[in-house]
């Protein structure tokens, strides 16, 4: 299939065999989906959001179905960064795919420690989660202002020995200002968008469906917003952008590449279709064949205005 087609891209010095990655929080540490397809078919995997210590996460219900999407309020349930390093990296390294460690903290000090610890681990890049909307401290509270971004990114950069990808929240007034702040503070790449803060109510019971009351909206419903933000950011930064938000197939992925993304992440679609990731890879290849494009990099920023 990919005989005369070059699918590889590079993000901050990390070579990806193709531009499709699994988005953090939808793919665990890959074990579940490895029963459905060969993880080596993916460009990379951004693992479930990690914290210094194990986190229990938020009380259920943690999911609500919405038109063409879902709201979630998992709240970073994870076994902690040390467990990840000991137990999950050896499993993931059996596959030929880039490992991106998604890292969160309650305080700037915790972000520093996370980056320091992960810099010595056998991973390819760190994705700094400054955008989870479901926790009280850290994350989106740091990532929703330019000052907050500058403060965290500048401080963790000193400890970073791996490429630093900063994951941005869309819950801001000016995404370009936030993206530039991250770039100026030393981010090697950006990933966007995290989920949009939302809410669902059951009119029958008059109660919020999520126990956490609010949650993060993802899925096809947010694709136009994500596409717009990726486009605006890519126009205004020099570092590579990883686009995500509602990508379900190759055509969606191509749209993000055209908007300026150098790679894409697929997440929520995989909850419905466990083959969404590899179908997206195949879909991009098919698009390239049909349009006579031999190198996927030709698509990046190829939007015709």
């Amino acid at each position: 299939m990919s005989n005369n087609i070059n699918m590889s891209v590079e993000i901050a010095g990390v070579r990806l065999k193709n531009p499709v990655l699994a988005a953090s929080g939808t793919f665990g540490f890959g074990r579940e989906y490895s029963e459905y397809f060969d993880l080596s078919l993916l460009g990379g995997i951004s693992v479930k959001g990690l914290t210094l210590k194990p986190r229990k996460g938020n009380p259920p219900p943690r999911i609500a179905e919405t038109p063409s999407g879902i709201l979630n309020s998992v709240g970073l349930q994870n076994p902690g960064v040390h467990y990840f390093i000991e137990n999950e990296i050896p499993f993931l390294r059996k596959y030929d795919t880039a490992i991106i460690a998604n890292a969160s903290g309650n305080t700037v000090e915790e972000y520093e420690q996370m980056v320091e610890i992960l810099s010595d681990a056998d991973i390819d890049a760190i994705e700094l989660n400054l955008s989870c909307p479901n926790v009280k401290e850290g994350c989106m509270s740091f990532g929703s202002t330019a000052e907050g971004i500058v403060n965290v990114v500048k401080r963790v950069k000193k400890y970073a020995k791996k490429p630093l990808i900063v994951k941005l929240t869309p819950n801001v007034t000016d995404i370009v200002e936030i993206a530039k702040a991250a770039e100026d503070s030393g981010a090697d790449a950006l990933s966007l968008i995290n989920t949009l803060l939302g809410m669902a109510i059951d009119a029958k019971t008059r109660k919020p469906i999520l126990k956490n009351i609010t949650g993060g909206l993802s899925g096809p419903a947010i694709k136009p917003v994500a596409l717009r933000m990726v486009y605006q950011v890519a126009q205004n930064v020099k570092i590579p952008v990883i686009g995500m938000g509602g990508i379900s197939n190759g055509t969606d992925a191509v749209e993000f590449l055209l908007a300026g993304a150098s790679a894409v992440m697929v997440g929520t679609a995989g909850l419905v279709n466990p083959y969404a990731w590899i179908e997206t890879v195949k879909g991009i290849e098919e698009y390239m064949k049909e349009t006579n494009i031999s190198d996927v990099k030709e698509l990046i920023g190829g939007l015709i205005i």
């Binding site: 929080g25 939808t26 793919f27 665990g28 074990r31 579940e32 989906y33 029963e35 479930k48 996460g57 938020n58 009380p59 259920p60 219900p61 943690r62 999911i63 879902i70 979630n72 998992v74 349930q77 995989g270 909850l271 466990p274």
Partner: peptide, 11 residues
């Protein structure tokens, strides 16, 4: 959500 233990929503 996913039904197979990856998305962690059904706590």
């Amino acid at each position: 959500g996913c039904g197979m233990g990856a998305c962690l929503v059904c706590a």
